[in-house]
């Protein structure tokens, strides 16, 4: 384990350093304008001339005036510490000390990322459950009925090649027009995205038992139902978990994309609001929150997977 941590840590640090360096050219124009107002001498003195110069040239000409690069109010690229500060301020800071925080009012503040993260998480879970449930049912049908296998499976594969997210705004508007709004439309998109990985994985898993095992069940003259519950379902569990990991990440993406058209809270709404008002740090903080959520969800499924497989005696 320690053998792995050192290189990973080194890479993370290297990327961070790269990020800090990249902040310089990305923010150079804004930084120089501010430095000029503060009285520093800038190499091409007029902003019009600077507009047409390359960012690196500006950085090299004005190395003395770049001090504020990492502390701008509205940077094009916020530095890592600015993002972390924003993340802290809009989660723990907002809840503990904010006027609408949970400490003062007893409810989560609608400005905090915890509140928006929970909204996204709700939609993700509902969509994930619907998608996984339907996926398992369809996979059982496909394995048992040759007609379903031949007619549905090709379409399931073709639908993988279609950019389904393009449907998201339409699903939301159409469901809204027939009176369904809030959690469900987002969950529908999540379910749509998490559905197919589960179908494909489960079909593979349900077909995993070899002919020897199936023949044994036949010599017991077992009903199809018994074969399903005693042989096919147990042997599909490892495949199921592999698909669930993909499916939960996909349904988080679905929930976030689903929040873009309707501004009613959620991490996707925060990102879009940040992009409207030029609050880059806010977008990055929401992005970091989403990344953290994805990591925690996939990790959680990994933990459940290990526990389940160990209890079933399938751990290698």
């Amino acid at each position: 384990m320690t053998r792995l941590i050192r290189p990973v840590l080194a890479m993370v640090l290297a990327l961070m350093a790269l990020w800090y360096v990249a902040v310089l050219p990305m923010n150079v124009k804004e930084t120089l304008t501010q430095a000029e107002r503060a009285g520093a001498v800038i190499a091409p003195p007029s902003a019009v001339e600077r507009r047409d110069m390359s960012n690196w040239a500006l950085v090299l000409n004005n190395t003395h005036a770049l001090g504020e690069s990492w502390n701008l109010d509205r940077p094009r690229l916020p530095a890592p510490h600015q993002v972390l500060t924003e993340l802290y301020a809009s989660t723990i800071g907002e809840e503990v000390t904010g006027r609408r925080g949970i400490v003062k009012t007893g409810t989560l503040s609608n400005r905090s990322l915890i509140y928006h993260g929970l909204i996204t998480l709700n939609a993700t879970f509902v969509g994930f459950l619907i998608g996984t449930g339907l996926g398992v049912v369809l996979a059982v049908g496909i394995v048992h009925s040759r007609v379903m296998d031949m007619s549905v499976m090709p379409w399931a594969i073709v639908s993988q090649t279609i950019p389904i997210v393009a449907l998201a705004p339409m699903i939301i508007v159409v469901l809204y027009s027939i009176g369904i709004q809030g959690l469900l439309p987002k969950a529908v998109i999540s379910a749509y995205l998490s559905f197919f990985p589960v179908v494909v994985g489960m079909v593979k898993g349900l077909r995993a038992p070899d002919s020897m095992q199936l023949d044994l069940m036949r010599t017991y003259s077992a009903e199809p139902m018994t074969v399903l519950t005693k042989l096919r379902l147990p042997s599909s569990v490892p495949y199921l978990f592999a698909s669930l990991k993909i499916a939960i990440a996909a349904s988080l993406v679905g929930a976030i994309v689903g929040e873009l058209p309707v501004q009613q809270g959620g991490l996707g709404a925060r990102m879009l609001a940040g992009s409207y008002y030029g609050q880059t740090a806010q977008i990055w903080a929401a992005l970091l929150m989403a990344a953290g959520l994805a990591a925690v969800l996939v990790w959680l499924i990994g933990v459940i997977e290990r526990r389940t497989l160990r209890r079933m005696g399938m751990m290698a």
Binding site: M26, R76, L77, V165, K245, A249, L252, V253, I256, V257, L267, G268, M271, L272, G274, S275, G278, T280, I283, W284, A286, L287, A290, A291, A294, A295, V298
Partner: peptide, 15 residues
């Protein structure tokens, strides 16, 4: 590879 990278879209459109 598992992250919601679509989320970077607003930032990149800004850049």
């Amino acid at each position: 590879a598992a992250l919601p990278i679509v989320g970077t879209a607003p930032i990149l459109v800004m850049w």
